[in-house]
Design a binder for these strands. Structure first.
Length: 541
DNA sequence: ATCTGTAAACAAG
DNA sequence: CTTGTTTACAGAT
């Protein structure tokens, strides 16, 4: 497997000159790359030099600084701290995750990214285990609260790693005011071994191979991947280290086990709800799995029909909005999403509220990825239509995931496997809405909107969101509980809103903090030009 | 002191 | 063997 890497390796070489050199911590993301001035010539040497370190894999214990020393050799001002540059593992990991379309990666993918993105590791990638660095990666993932692990269904895949919105840095991150009871502090740390067992259950559907289009457009060699993991359902969050992560950490629970229960925080009512009320803790996962099984077809179909009849049939499928970026040309990040989106879209629109698969995630992620354009489009229209309360929408975003987990209507089987994967941004958009509307879409949009509105309206009127069920995770047990969707929603709507603010703020803060940014190199541009205006979005105050 | 990179022991799958 | 967690240590700041 890795071999591929080898081959590839031959080809590119980006040069490692990226030397960020002293960058003040203050810079945020100035896309416009910082100046990289003078290039430290030595870089070249480094490039070559890097290798040698490798040999050391074996190096015995004791030595350690070897590598470092080498790097250090250079002067402090600009030289790399670590053979591969100034970035720390944690930063690299963050970049890797960020670069992912969905902002989440499995451990293996992270490795991959390293190998292809960072010259230094390029060679080492494949060397089997050789890697101490892999150990370090793992270590870092586990260690910092800034990374959160999300359970990944899929066949046997390992968990997804994403970054924690709040960013919790090492161990503690007790920011947040909240008051009330926040005990945790140290007591909590008990975690000790609770872990011991989690319910695993993985039946999984291996069959899913169908995975549509994976994402990873950009990856050049895409490893073997190509189609695999897309399906997932992320839930199961887990804040590490005692508190922190909190912000959104909603964990589903089964695992948790940690009696930390007190743990306080909660934040997502819905989730909590599930865990708490339901007694079926462990099963949650299962539910999810179920989801896996479903087809988007069923539910959606009904919806679709509606729409179609309403106005344009074609819409959904291909064209209409999907066009995504016209030019995208570049590379596109595109995400296949657009492709299948149809379903999603319909779904969303019809349903005015609820769910998005990864919403949460989206929330967390600060920057807005490229994808949203599409979604935005559709969403936009809706908004106005709905008119009445945007809040619902808002809520939607936040709550999406929650909703998803908890509510589910009625279809037994429907399940949007793919859906989860791509659409992410959708929910989020709202916040970012103002972005750029796509010009061309307008037309389609209009029509769409119309239809949508109609649909929406209806559904809304009904008050019941049956359709959305398309997603229907169907939580058996839960199901019963959730009757009054609306109520629930309202209930936590408030919370959500708050959170949102909070989150936003957080993000801002984060932004300031993070400087990583420049690309490591390579052609990995995760996203080509996405940045653009969106930045403003969060520049509120 | 804190942060960071490494190595390693270990539990689970 | 891979994935994750945790300890422990050594160096740099």
């Amino acid at each position: 497997m890795a071999e591929a890497g080898g081959a590839a390796a031959a080809g590119l070489d980006i040069d490692p000159d990226f030397e960020p050199q002293s960058r003040p911590r203050s810079c945020t993301w100035p896309l416009p790359r910082p100046e990289l001035p003078a290039a430290p010539a030595e870089a070249g040497g480094a490039a070559g030099g890097a290798e040698e370190g490798a040999g050391g894999a074996a190096a015995g214990p004791g030595r350690a600084e070897g590598a470092r020393a080498g790097g250090a050799a250079a002067r402090k001002g600009g030289s790399r701290r670590n053979a591969w540059g100034n970035q720390s593992y944690a930063e690299l990991i963050s970049q890797a995750i960020e670069s992912a379309p969905e902002k989440r990666l499995t451990l293996a993918q992270i490795y991959e990214w390293m190998v292809r993105s960072v010259p230094y590791f390029k060679d080492k990638g494949d060397s089997n285990s050789s890697a101490g660095w892999k150990n370090s990666i793992r270590h870092n993932l586990s260690l910092h609260s800034k990374f959160i692990k999300v359970h990944n269904e899929a066949t046997g895949k390992s968990s997804w790693w994403m970054l924690n919105p709040e960013g919790g840095k090492s161990g503690k991150a007790p920011r947040r005011r909240a008051a009330s009871m926040d005990n945790s502090s140290k007591l909590a740390k008990v975690r000790g071994k609770a872990s011991k067992k989690k319910a695993s259950l993985q039946s999984t559907s291996e069959a899913t191979a169908d995975s549509p289009g994976s994402q990873f457009p950009k990856w050049p060699g895409s490893p073997s991947s190509r189609s695999n993991e897309d399906s997932d359902v992320w839930n199961t969050f887990r804040p590490r280290t005692s508190s922190n992560a909190s912000t959104i950490s909603a964990r589903l629970s089964p695992i948790l086990t940690e009696q930390d229960d007190l743990h306080d925080e909660e934040l997502l009512p819905s989730l909590v709800y599930s865990s708490a009320s339901s007694n079926v803790p462990p099963t949650v996962t299962e539910e999810l799995e179920l989801i896996d099984g479903l087809n988007l077809m069923s539910p959606s179909s009904s919806v679709l029909s509606t729409q179609q009849s309403a106005s344009s049939g074609p819409i959904q499928r291909d064209s209409s909005f999907s066009l995504r970026s016209p030019n995208a040309a570049g590379q596109t990040t595109t995400f296949g999403n657009s492709l299948f989106n149809p379903v999603d879209i319909s779904l969303q629109s019809s349903v005015s509220h609820f769910s998005g698969p990864q919403t949460l995630e989206a929330l967390l992620t600060p920057s807005s990825p490229p994808p949203r354009d599409v979604m935005m489009t559709q969403v936009d229209p809706v908004l106005p239509q709905t008119g009445s309360r945007m809040s619902s929408r808002t809520l939607l975003l936040l709550g999406g995931q929650a909703a998803q987990s908890k509510m589910s209507p009625g279809n037994p089987r429907g399940k949007p496997t793919e859906q989860q994967a791509e659409p992410v941004g959708a929910n989020v958009l709202p916040s970012t809405l103002p972005i750029v509307a796509s010009p061309q879409n307008t037309a389609s949009m209009a029509s769409l909107k119309a239809s949508v509105s109609a649909t929406t309206a209806q559904s809304v009127q009904l008050g019941t969101p049956p359709l959305l069920s398309s997603a229907s995770p169907a939580p058996l047990g839960l199901n019963q509980d959730r009757l009054p969707t609306d109520l629930d929603i309202d209930m936590y709507m408030e919370n959500l809103e708050c959170d949102m603010d909070y989150i936003i703020n957080s993000d801002l803060m984060d932004g300031e903090g993070l400087d990583f940014n420049f690309e490591p190199i390579l052609s990995t541009p995760s996203y080509p030009s996405t940045s653009q205006a969106s930045n403003h979005t969060w520049v509120p105050s």
